[in-house]
């Protein structure tokens, strides 16, 4: 479908509310650590641009993938963190003697992905009235290009474009970048817009 300015405004609003919810959730997980947010940046780009969408395709990343569906809407959601940001979060949340990239660290990343993606879906659900269910998360650790390329290679029936929401949160005197990629199935975006009265 063709995405106009009105659609982009709606996505920006969704990104803003979702990021606010996600920051609140992360703050709670980090024992009420203050987390400030920059206004999320929303980009819409053709699917084939995914592998390079986060900059250097050779950058090592951690990605948590979940499928959301319900009320006739289906989308794949991928939360991507640089490996450095992932390790930084894990070390704040796990006991010191745990290996950040061991079994418990991987488990934590999947739970973190589940909670943060649910924060965004909660915003989408509130805005549309749709009830969306998630599949269990799966985790990938690899170079961004290879990992994101494999996501679209496995998917059929996707819209021609994907949505990238770039978030920058500030905590522990450092910036933590988290990127959310939304890959709607054909017809899903139109259904969401129609539900919200934006055509």
């Amino acid at each position: 479908m063709i995405i106009n300015e009105c659609h982009k405004d709606l996505l920006a609003e969704l990104a803003s509310i979702g990021a606010g919810n996600a920051a609140t959730a992360l703050s709670q997980m980090l024992q009420d650590q203050v987390i400030t947010l920059q206004v999320p940046e929303v980009k819409i780009a053709p699917l084939q641009d995914i592998p390079a969408s986060l900059g250097d395709p050779e950058q090592e990343v951690a990605a948590v993938l979940l499928e959301a569906s319900g009320d006739g809407v289906s989308l794949t959601v991928v939360l991507v963190l640089s490996l450095q940001a992932a390790v930084q979060l894990i070390t704040r949340l796990l006991p010191e003697d745990c290996d950040p990239l061991g079994e418990m660290g991987s488990s934590l990343l999947m739970e973190l992905g589940n909670i943060l993606v649910s924060s965004y879906l909660g915003a989408l659900s509130t805005m549309t009235g749709f009830t969306l269910r998630l599949t269990p998360p799966s985790l990938g650790l690899d170079m961004a290009g290879a990992l994101l390329g494999s996501v679209i290679a496995e998917k059929m029936m996707l819209e021609d474009n994907f949505i990238l929401i770039k978030n920058t949160m500030h905590a522990f005197n450092e910036d933590i970048e988290g990127n959310l990629l939304l890959l709607p199935e054909t017809g899903s975006l139109e259904k969401i817009y129609r539900q919200m009265g934006v055509c």
Partner: peptide
Amino acid sequence: SAMGQKAL
């Protein structure tokens, strides 16, 4: 659960 949507 992380899924706090009202219907769920």
